[in-house]
Simulated assay, not measured.
Amino acid sequence: MLNINHQKFLELDQLSQQKVPFFFVIDFLMENVLIFNEKDLKSKIILVDFPYFKNIENKEFASKKIEWQAFPQSKKDYEKGFKIVQEHLKRGDSYLVNYTTETPVETNLTLEEIFYQSKAKYKVLLNNEFTFFSPETFVEIKNQKIYTHPMKGTIEAEKQNAIELLKNDVKEKAEHYTVVDLLRNDLSMIADNVQLDEFQRIDYLQTSNKNLYAMSSEISGDVKPEFQYKIGSLLQKILPAGSILGAPKPKTLEVILEAENYKRGFYTGVAGYFDGENLDSCVIIRYIENKNFLYLNEKPNLVFKSGGGITHLSKLEDEYQEMKNKIYVPIH
């Protein structure tokens, strides 16, 4: 089913074995793998703002009132894919499916302004094609110890007792347990001594629209000798990322491709920086794409891609609302 770009993953292996620094962006289906060397990063073909690597300088923009309008699909249209997902869940084909959609948005902000002014742990701008501002780490490797931080479960921060509600919500808890279990299993394919270090940590995400609490956990292990300095092989083994796919992975991917009526592209793929020794990478979520990026003189045609985990406990109204809640820019 997957048309994986094996040549590019081999290139990632070769560069990491030579301990050559690079930045990469991999799409959801592992077909499109972009690799940027130090020269590319210096010439700013791609702009990166990561915790341990940046190739940007501070930039001032004129202050203006932000205009932001989203045009989400109707609940009726959303329900079509939701029902397909629920049918597969009832049949036992999957027990967690990350179902996503794309939403046209209009704003007086450029992709560059969104990139520079948004607040997030991981930010990338590729030409006029897309930007993302992701709060979610995928995997980190430090001194051959690997860490992953699955993020699953959100709630509006303004709700009374929001943290307790999130931690004790049956559906959100089941979703989080499933992803933690899946990621622990994924990590065990490439690491020894896998363990759960932190469970159900709550992070606060501030946005221009709604402030959210998100639930994360941390899992770690020791990179197996056969995967050390082989970033391509290691990533290929554990992609697509479990937190934005579901479980079990192969069948759930089939469900997603049947239920979703658009191509995710780079959304829900991964991006990362290898410094010659260590790796930091993120899941590409909170993603805005310009569908007119090839036409420089055309008005941008922006879409925001968002979604959430669906289980047999999911209610249509709640999931539709969560998809809409995530359509925001973290500028405040």
Rank of each mutant, 00 (worst) to 15 (best):
G232N: 05
K119Y: 08
V270T: 13
F199I: 11
Q7T: 15
V48D: 01
F227K: 05
L205E: 05
D192A: 10
N143C: 01
G242T: 01
F115G: 10
F28Q: 07
F293K: 05
I146Y: 13
A259T: 04
V48M: 04
L313W: 02
V20F: 09
A157H: 08
V179K: 03
P51N: 06
N143H: 12
L205S: 08
H88L: 08
A162K: 06
Q14M: 14
R184Y: 08
D186V: 01
S217F: 00
D275C: 06
S208A: 14
F130Y: 15
T178I: 07
Y287N: 01
I45E: 15
P72K: 01
E102W: 08
P300H: 00
P150K: 07
N292R: 02
E277I: 11
P104I: 07
S220V: 10
V25Q: 13
K54W: 00
D192L: 10
W68G: 01
Y78R: 06
L109P: 06
N32T: 14
T103I: 12
E140G: 02
R91P: 04
F227L: 03
F9S: 04
K8C: 11
L41A: 07
F138Y: 13
A70C: 10
E67T: 15
M215N: 11
Y122K: 07
Q236A: 10
T311D: 01
Q69L: 13
F22E: 04
I284K: 00
A62F: 07
E140L: 12
L279R: 03
V270R: 00
I46N: 05
D192Y: 08
V48K: 09
F71R: 12
P240W: 07
K121W: 03
I244K: 09
Y262S: 07
F61E: 00
S220G: 09
V180H: 10
L125V: 02
S216A: 11
G232I: 00
S233H: 03
Y147G: 05
L41P: 08
Y116G: 03
V180D: 09
S216D: 04
R264C: 11
N325Y: 12
L182Q: 09
K230S: 09
P330L: 07
M189I: 06
A247P: 04
Y204E: 13
M189G: 00
L253Y: 15
E60W: 06
E254W: 08
L166I: 03
N278F: 06
A162I: 00
L253F: 15
Q236D: 09
L165W: 03
L109R: 01
Q321P: 02
N32A: 13
F61I: 00
E158Y: 14
N161C: 05
D186K: 01
N161G: 04
L165R: 15
V329A: 06
V180S: 11
K210S: 11
S43W: 09
L125D: 08
S188W: 10
L316W: 08
R286Q: 07
E226M: 07
T252R: 11
P330G: 05
L313Q: 14
E156N: 14
Y267V: 06
F138C: 03
D13C: 10
M1H: 15
Q117M: 14
Q228S: 04
